[in-house]
Amino acid sequence: MTLRRLLTVVVALVLLVYPFVVNSFWLVQIGGRTLGFGTIVLSLVFLTAYTGMLSLAQMTVAGVAGYATAYFTAPTGGVGLELAWPVALILALGLATLAGLLIGLVAVRTRGIYTLMITLAVAMAFYYLTLQNYAVFNGFTGFNNVEPPVIAGLDLGAPLPFYYLSAVLAVLCYAGVRHVVRTPFGLALQGLRDEPQRLQALGYNVPLLRVLAFGLAGFVAGIGGILNLWLNASISPGSVALNPVIDVLMAGVLGGIGHPAGAYVGAFVFTIVDNFAIDFIARERFNTLIGLVFLAIVLFSPDGLTGLVRRAWARWAGTGRRRDDAPDDSTNIGK
């Protein structure tokens, strides 16, 4: 337990000090992106680790929040309706949650690969909708110049405030997920993951639980989506196209879809590879490299990088010291 606490302190310190040891590129493009994109990945990891459901529509839900925020804060070419930013953000998150719930409704009767396929279909449908709809999504162009609000003179779009905003929201989402899985609702979700039939016989409404899990994941993805929007200062169909949709799954698998920390680890590694692979390898082979890294991880550590670390840790702890006999307070349930 003390080690866990120590790790928490170290992560908190790194998050705090990070801006003072890196340049603005590392601050925003690597740091900010890891935290915003990681939060979208977190919504997938939450679904997978605690409810056993895979979704390819998390970037889509994030896109809903992004588009909504853009629509309500940065109207362009007659598209959009300017609202006060708190109202806009509440609406955006509400719509993302609603989108999550709707996707849950569509996917609720499916399992495994079928869930993946149906959520992919939803994601692609949304992509084409944004591409071809002008009244709401402004078609191919989407929304540009979407700036975060300035609150009491503090410009949240400036690198340092934006980084800390991202860090705070990411930490809140992470802590929120860790909290929820230890509530009666969260336990029920894990029951759903392990034995849905059993859960039903205990009096739970299994389809409702599934839909609600998607809704909650939608809320989290929505927060990530807004951060992503502000990072790019814009959103267009390219932001919800097949590539970014797949990227979420890739980052999740890289980091390990069994533990929420894997979301951010995966997002970080993915961002690094995405930005720097081009230095080490000809650009035509760029996607090949990402594919190979992905393959290697899936092959050698099916539970991703966090799984790798955890196993190495367990081995070290097992041989280096006598294991603590007192059973763990079962706080790290989550497979």
């Binding site: 509530t183 009666p184 969260g186 336990l187 029920a188 894990q190 034995e195 059993r198 205990l202 349930i333």
Partner: peptide, 29 residues
């Protein structure tokens, strides 16, 4: 059919909640 990823206590607690509710409480651990 037991919830393999949960402890025995949590398994039993899920059962108690299922019979009494509210089942979807989300605020308190």
């Amino acid at each position: 059919l037991v919830f393999g990823g949960l402890s025995v206590r949590d398994n039993l607690y899920v059962a108690i909640r299922g019979a009494t509710g509210p089942r979807l409480a989300i605020w308190r651990r």
